[in-house]
Design a protein around this nucleic acid. Structure first.
Lengths: 192, 192
DNA sequence: CCTAGAAGTCACCAACTGATGACATGGCCC
DNA sequence: GGGCCATGTCATCAGTTGGTGACTTCTAGG
């Protein structure tokens, strides 16, 4: 599927670990937990599959490690508060989905139905998404606002995953982006 | 998992087909395509697993049949246009998720990551969700409005699936419901 | 009552998965 | 240079899955 990430790597445990983690993250994001086999990850990382179980304990532990060492919501929270909606909407509706920013969403969406992965996702999506978002929002109804934001972000990603944007042309995507931005900004600072 | 749906059924092909379809729909909705085995469905339907392949051709064909014979968006489109937001938001945020109305969403969310099921989902979600919704909305920007509605509906369902509502209490859920209703109604008839 | 064929069951297959223990190999320190 | 241990590979296992063909059993029609 992918070219090897670290072409030169000679018996360097740390580098091998990283290569496995990166390969796993990409696989989990683009195919989901169930559809990703240890042999796939190993092949991408240029490593024998047995090594993964030895390094991480097993597939589930690898998945947890991928979640905890990966990107989180902080990226979206950086920057001007007033342009939050526009920044996020741009990513959700316009930017190509292969972006790394998407990986967290994709992993959650594509793996949430696997019982083995569900608990890790639930925990991580709370700790590395909801909680920071809620704190960033502040105020009494931060929890509800965070949920509303999450609904739109998740739903927009889900729709792109299912339909791969076949249904909307560039113009419509632009309109979608603007509408999403308004909704998001409203959830951030408007009346709930 | 579930009690047999048709306790008395003696060599009645049509009834057996229906029993299999119902069992499959529930399984696919609550566990997803990958996690559901033909043996699980057969067990729920009180039938031998071999019968499923013989009746439907295979798991993929069964899945397609479940989608096409199941509920669609029409249920949400019935009733007063002005109360659309409230009705849908009520379902999304308040009503128990075991409701049959949810099954279409759950099937899509929980099975979208399976390549075998993805194409059927894409097609069905277009034919039995987007298209009717777009027609119902009407107007030049119906496609964009349909997408916006879909984002919120999908996202809200996704969040409930992941977090099972642990994060919100009754009061917050009520606030969430009202906010969702406003957003949905705005997408239906407000300025996009 | 009896048989033909539908309805349902059983045993089994090949493919795949995650995992494990035995083995090979290369780099580092003395 | 030589041995040791971390690093990596190989063969293989047990479990599960979807699928298939041969078999049994029950019902309907004569």
């Amino acid at each position: 599927m992918s070219p090897p990430l670290s072409p030169v790597r000679t018996r360097n445990a740390a580098a091998t670990r990283t290569a496995i983690l990166e390969a796993a993250r990409r696989r989990f994001a683009h195919e989901g937990y169930d559809q990703t086999g240890l042999r796939d990850i190993a092949s991408d990382a240029g490593v024998d599959a047995a090594l993964i179980s030895r390094y991480f304990g097993g597939k589930e532990e690898l998945f947890e490690e991928v979640l905890t060492c990966g990107p989180n919501i902080a990226e979206f929270l950086d920057g001007d508060r007033d342009s939050f909606g526009e920044r996020v909407a741009q990513m959700l509706a316009v930017e190509p989905m292969r972006e790394e920013k998407f990986e967290l969403f994709l992993i959650m969406l594509r793996s949430a139905s696997s019982p083995k992965a569900a608990e890790a996702i639930r925990r991580h999506s709370h700790d590395a998404f909801y909680q920071p978002l809620e704190t960033w929002l502040g105020g009494d109804d931060a929890a509800v606002r965070a949920r509303l934001l999450s609904c739109v972000m998740m739903g927009a990603t889900m729709n792109r995953v299912i339909h791969e944007d076949y249904l909307l042309d560039g113009q419509q995507r632009q309109e979608l982006c603007e509408a999403l931005a308004r909704t998001l900004d409203n959830y951030v600072s408007g009346p709930v």
